[in-house]
């Protein structure tokens, strides 16, 4: 799953550690989500959307997976 987490974090001048504290997860989790190595749970995705005041679909993009499901 693709996401704009790193871009949004940079725009808000936020470190991974700060975002991790806001989301109540480890810094590794934030890092893994940014690298696309971990897909967040629905609960965490909602928390991210609340932190950046954006809808989930503007932060996370299922990319190829959605296209494959549609087929």
């Amino acid at each position: 799953m693709n996401n704009r987490l790193r871009v949004l974090r940079a725009e808000h001048k936020m470190s991974q550690a700060t975002l991790a504290e806001l989301l109540d997860v480890s810094r590794q989790t934030v890092n893994a989500i940014e690298l696309g190595k971990h897909d967040p749970s629905l609960q965490l995705a909602f928390k991210v959307s609340q932190v950046f005041s954006l809808p989930i679909e503007e932060i996370f993009d299922p990319g190829d997976e959605q296209a494959m499901a549609a087929e």
């Binding site: 470190s15 991974q16 810094r27 590794q28 890092n31 893994a32 940014e34 690298l35 190595k37």
Partner: peptide, 13 residues
């Protein structure tokens, strides 16, 4: 692996 990934991206910040 997690620690190495975290260290690499820390340098990027």
């Amino acid at each position: 692996r997690l620690a190495c990934d975290a260290a690499e991206t820390e340098e990027v910040q």
